[in-house]
Design a protein around this nucleic acid. Structure first.
Lengths: 390, 390
DNA sequence: TGCGATAAGTTCAGGCATCAAACTTATTGG
DNA sequence: CCAATAAGTTTGATGCCTGAACTTATCGCA
């Protein structure tokens, strides 16, 4: 934990720059006067800050606004579509994905490629990642930051990957390595794949500010959002739910414990129990009404329900979002999962837990990573502005 | 959620005042120069801020410091013992308690009185509370704020009590009512009793920045501290653990669900199962090795273990603090509770959960309430300073 | 006793970001 | 064409921090 920093006039401008930018992002097309009214700053201050940000290419002026009554028309302000873009990369267990988003969070390009990252050394994978980033950065848009999603425990402040069981990685300085390998001089942010998917859901999905996002791929990850902010937990360990023991007398798990959620409701287990070779085949069988497949998914749903009810009870979360593979399986998970939650969640009687499938699908994590990179600029634009104008 | 406020020079001073005060609180006896070095502010700034705070009575100068080498000796600074005090009140189910602390958090006076608050209307109880506060405030020290601990769900920002099942209260505007009834012109802060006890443990106990504090009185409450800050959760509902369902097929609870922790491990249930009339008798029987009493406590410990392992798994908390009645029962709870945690907590294998009894005992909540009041001044001294100097 | 070195604390000019208010510019409606 | 209205700019004042010079206090050594 670092000591708090002293504040000076510069800090004030920093704070207010973020405030102004946030107002513009929230209500695109506002005039300077509207932003002033919204933020509580004076028109003079807003003008000065906006001019700086236009100079740095974060904000652009649009057409003069229409107006019904008398008076001069305001000039519309919005986040510049040619401003810095965020580049997201996801290091999956068996693929690499990238995603390019503009300041408003809109996806401008994406790219996915299979890659067995379990079989390669971290150094080799990171070289591939660097090359993927360079390829994606070849678009003629400026890159303002890179976000990296990894399936493991991340020490967020340092950008170092502590442990990724499903990759077989341990203590890899992802930020340091990538910063070194990229010739781009931009910040590299590293985050847990489940947390970034949850943030994508918060920013681009249709759920409110409090929810638990659970995604099943090779592993099971949960991202908890409370009050519109990611709950990082102790040492960035926000809601590692995969190895929650849901059946203390259940089968042994690779982690050493027994009856872990991942062991009972993970994608691998569902596929195995259904007797299929992959998720696509599983979905085909389910659609065809195959009994074995249905049973396998319903069993997973019940274990998921046990784990989720604990989290929901403890945190009083109103909503659960199913992401990743679970989003695709949602129609078959729905009923047993809901039954379990209704039975176990205390507050279910007067306000049932809402369970929704993510609308973002498999791209949630990369998109979250990319958006995190631009959000970092929006949340504290002044260093960026200063660096561009200097 | 309120929009963020614009910043101005005043905000800077506010921030830095808190920074300086924090440095003095953290290292009492520091000189202005030491504070400057520690905070990163210049000596000039520190001098100016310190002088203001001395003027307002928050900081006092001590003796000149001893020094080994050459050079002028610094004047020791510390929080003023005659500065504003925090007054805590706890509205228990069957008692009222008050506690007066100075700026450093040291207890200067306390007072407890039985009072069956279940049987009285909120208005009558709040009148008693107001009179207790007035009595406690009769000491000749200035009161800087009042903290109120209540056994129920509190909407912290508004200071309103949403629901207190064990008091039979619902939607009581505690802050508004008390502010009106007290002639003191100081802020009144209202908080959940379990959360305030957890904060007391954080500030005055001997545990680090991450833990779960669980206290058993009439109800069971948990306060979760992550990264040295209280985790408030959704709508101030931080870790309401009492009605976590630990045995879905267990006995019906007053709340409508079944097998709630409170129903299986609450003080009332332990006392009933042990066949005694109260906790004091229970302790006597336990000390005498009474079999029924021991069995009752061990059973409660196991259910507690189930509930706590869920929370600990999800939040990756390293420590559990037993407060309230559980602190007194700790010797008998210890073994079965630990067994359950070791069995259910995933990370227990490489870092076992530490379970400790609170050293603060029954006074934790009042003390937390009182300290919250002074902490509010220390965390943002400028409004107080300005009001005193004006 | 006196002097140089060292460190604490104060004073003061300078800089910077905000604010309030006056001012300029653009637009509508009569 | 002008009054009314609103957007956006200019200007001077204010407040707070900074850096550097300055004053004060103390030690060690001759």
């Amino acid at each position: 934990m670092s000591r708090p920093q002293p504040a000076s006039q510069h800090t004030v401008r920093r704070h207010n720059s973020a405030l102004v930018l946030d107002a513009i992002a929230d209500a695109p097309g506002s005039s300077r006067a509207a932003v002033a009214a919204r933020t509580g700053l004076t028109k003079a201050t807003v003008s000065s800050l906006v001019d700086r940000m236009i100079g740095a290419g974060l904000v652009a002026e649009g057409e003069a606004q229409a107006r019904s009554g008398p008076g001069r028309r305001g000039t519309a302000l919005h986040l510049s579509p040619t401003g810095p873009h965020g580049l997201g990369v996801e290091i999956g267990v068996d693929y690499l994905a990238t995603c390019l988003v503009d300041l408003t969070g809109r996806v401008r390009a994406r790219w996915v490629r299979p890659s067995d990252n379990r079989a390669s050394s971290p150094a080799r994978v990171l070289a591939k990642v660097a090359s993927a980033v360079r390829t994606a950065a070849k678009q003629d848009v400026p890159i303002g930051g890179v976000g990296v999603a990894v399936p493991g425990l991340v020490e967020v402040a340092g950008g170092s990957l502590r442990l990724a069981p499903n990759l077989g990685w341990r203590e890899v300085d992802v930020r340091g390595e990538l910063t070194r390998r990229l010739e781009l001089d931009v910040p590299v942010l590293v985050g847990n794949e489940a947390n970034l998917a949850a943030l994508a859901e918060l920013w681009h999905g249709d759920v409110a500010a409090d929810f638990l996002h659970i995604s099943g791929e090779i592993g099971i990850g949960a991202g908890i959002v409370v009050g519109g902010a990611l709950f990082e937990g102790v040492s960035g360990f926000g809601g590692e739910i995969g190895h929650l023991s849901v059946d203390p007398r259940g089968p042994a798990c690779a982690c050493g414990s027994r009856g872990c959620l991942e062991r009972l409701a993970g994608q691998d287990e569902i596929v195995r129990a259904a007797g299929v070779t992959g998720v696509d085949e599983l979905l085909a069988r389910l659609a065809a009404g195959d009994r074995t497949a249905t049973t396998a998914v319903r069993s997973a749903a019940r274990w998921l329900g046990v784990a989720l009810s604990g989290a929901v009870n403890l945190l009083d979360l109103p909503t659960v979002v199913l992401g990743g593979t679970y989003a695709r399986l949602e129609p078959w998970l729905h009923e047993p999962l809901h039954a379990e939650l209704d039975r176990r969640v205390v507050s279910a009687e007067w306000s049932p837990v809402r369970v929704v499938a993510s609308s973002l699908g498999a791209e949630a994590a990369v998109r979250g990573a990319a958006t995190t990179a631009v959000r970092a600029i929006l949340a504290d634009p002044d260093p960026y502005v200063t660096s561009v104008l200097a």
